[in-house]
Design a protein around this nucleic acid. Structure first.
Lengths: 219, 219
DNA sequence: TGCGTGCTAGACTGGTAAGTATGATTGATT
DNA sequence: AATCAATCATACTTACCAGTCTAGCACGCA
């Protein structure tokens, strides 16, 4: 179990002639990558020995870059949240008509179902939201809130649809999408209750467009 | 930390004259109740000593009723799933008109936000869905699938609405509701992005009714 | 050449936890 | 009164783990 030979046997093989700063961040990078794999696979209970081994680095090196397990974990989640912050929702999307816009948003959101890292991160953040409420609040503040707000802003601004409460409507759309990811992938529901993404997307698009249309006619 | 005096000091106080079977299940019950509080509060990493102490029972007694920690955990989750299996969705609800029906379903689902046990169970099952995939599959099979199927059956049968894909529509509704619980309570999002249940419910009801109406007119 | 820095492997400390073992107590049964 | 089964408190074994410590190695710099 811990008989990992660890390729680099204590010496710096000649091919690394970079400056200090670069080397420093290289180790830090390796540690974060190892921590990513181990934490996402095993949860917070993963051992620091396992992380050091996975990173191909001495345990002491981990502690020279991160104060303790908590700090490493928090730094990793921070990093992951940065990485996943929806770069989507910008510029060209906003120019789309309502039908294409909603469909595109849905496709982008659901495409993350294929990303093991994203699915594991979701599970980890929800699972540790008792022990680390700050981290789940970070997730909400950095990934959920901006996404819903942009979606709501689009719904409010677009001429083709009108909702009495665009904020709440945005939540319905977002919730339907994210919960699909949680049900199918995080909770392994795809075997017991399979459903194609297209069917979900079509339903969402229909509901939004029909309801948005209706909103225009009344009031 | 473990200086808990444990009221009952090794003797059965006279007021319990029940038969063996009753006493047996009484202990088992106490253990499960202690395990419930401790597991839901601390997650699977809770210690067996803590559980025994919380249950007011000797550790050995725990092991005489449950093979090991895994079995106790699984038995507890089973029990909790049974307890939460939506007794709703029966009889009188089905007789309601579409608007009242959807609203009622939504209110029932969201009312669980106030239930600490339900919120903690959700967090626990999702968090441990990596380590215990069977349990999350149990959750899906026992709580999610029946609920969505009943909802879909209603949508399919009701005359007032028509959807091209009632199954998918049911998922949208369910996802919007459950994700609201997860966001607001499990992930502590209610401070960063507050929203009243009524607003969400109104949006869902509007979307469902407008879209269901539209489905009738076309096709 | 010699020093400092960042790293390495590995041992160690102190604490916690799962599961087992022991021996006593108690109430029910015979 | 003797026995049995369930329970109790406590201590033990084994294992893991966070975090520290040691001693040595390799590279860069002066």
């Amino acid at each position: 179990m811990n008989s990992r030979p660890s390729q680099n046997s204590g010496n710096r093989t000649s091919e690394e002639g970079r400056d200090n700063v670069t080397r420093l961040s290289e180790k830090r990078e390796k540690i974060l990558e190892g921590a990513l794999r181990v934490f996402l696979a095993q949860g917070y209970s993963a051992s620091m020995d396992a992380i050091a081994a996975e990173a191909g680095v001495a345990k002491q090196t981990v502690y020279s870059h991160f104060k303790d397990k908590n700090s490493l974990f928090a730094a990793l989640i921070d990093r992951l949240l940065d990485h996943f912050v929806s770069a989507g929702l910008t510029a060209e999307l906003l120019a789309l008509d309502a039908r294409s816009f909603v469909r595109k948003i849905a496709q982008i959101t659901l495409s993350r179902m294929d990303d093991w890292e994203y699915v594991s991160l979701l599970r980890l953040i929800i699972g540790e939201s008792g022990r680390f409420p700050e981290l789940s609040e970070l997730y909400v503040a950095h990934m959920v809130k901006p996404g819903i707000e942009k979606l709501a802003a689009y719904l409010r601004a677009n001429e083709q649809v009108r909702f009495s409460d665009p904020e709440a409507t945005a939540r319905v759309i977002h919730g339907a999408l994210i919960n699909f990811v949680i049900l199918q992938e995080v909770m392994h529901g795809k075997h017991a209750m399979p459903m194609s993404r297209e069917r979900l997307i079509n339903s969402i698009v229909d509901m939004v467009l029909f309801a948005g249309e209706q909103g225009k006619q009344s009031s």
